[in-house]
Amino acid sequence: MTEKAIEAKKKGQKKSSEDYTYVGMVFHRLTRHKLAMAGVFMLIFIVLFVFVGPLIWRLDPNAQIEGLNGLFNPASRAHPMGTDDYGRDVLARMFFGGRISLFIGFASAITSTLLGAVVGLVAGYYGGWADNILMRFTDAMLSIPTFPLLIALASVFGKGVWQIILVIVVFGWMVDARLVRGLVLSLKEQEYVEAARAIGASANRIMWRHLFPNTLAVLIVSTTIGIGGNIIYEASISFLGFGVQAPFASWGNMLQNAQQFIWNSPRLIIYPGLAIFMTVLGFNFFGDGLRDAIDPKLKL
């Protein structure tokens, strides 16, 4: 903003386009991104479904409701999505399974992004042997075939929500580490980093106060897209039987459970499948839009 613009602002004149804050500018561009807005609506729908739904529809998702007669009931007024192979209400399970799937997606995406950011910051800022060791380790992690190891890990750590998050994080931080390292390599040549060194700032301070905030925009995009990916990951792990364990629901294990009944009760596959599809698509659309709003040239 020029001196003139500041003067103008003091006098309470209308904002010029230069006056937008960074966040304001990103928001503005985002609202004009059609795909991103489509993503936002899908996500709002999913979030309302998963969090508000159970307030209205108060059936216990784990209860076997109507005895032997209640198995595989088709949709009815009592059970809008029918019942499953144990006679549990599918709608209630969709709500609770969605919460678990979203929680796993969020928690693992944020944790793995932060872990990747730490590795990338240290490697990029220090360079030299620290960079070499960390990046060779990253390469090694990337070249491990995940699924066989997953199965091995599941037998060591057991199966459950926290174990899935742990596994996704352990195998999910590498791309972010590379991304942040690359950014830091160019950011650290900026004069404000030299300025921070000139005032005597420690390496830690430079990494967290100066470099990290400047990678944040990119990390938010990466996390957003990561949530979608991790929900699929959860579904695949659950599909192999190493995920969230019965009787607790996740969209992933609902799918897994339903595969045996695909010919008799295809709806048991369709509902969780559709929910996963919509959530992942929503996060991807939104993440793409966010990336374009932040920096159209960014490659992620």
Binding site: E191, Y192, A195, I199, G200, R209, H210, P213, N214, L216
Partner: peptide, 19 residues
């Protein structure tokens, strides 16, 4: 470093845009 400071040439690059 308390005793010796520097002021930079580039008014854009020398200030952290996120601070």
């Amino acid at each position: 470093r308390r005793n010796m400071q520097i002021m930079f040439q580039d008014p854009y690059g020398s200030l952290n845009p996120r601070m």
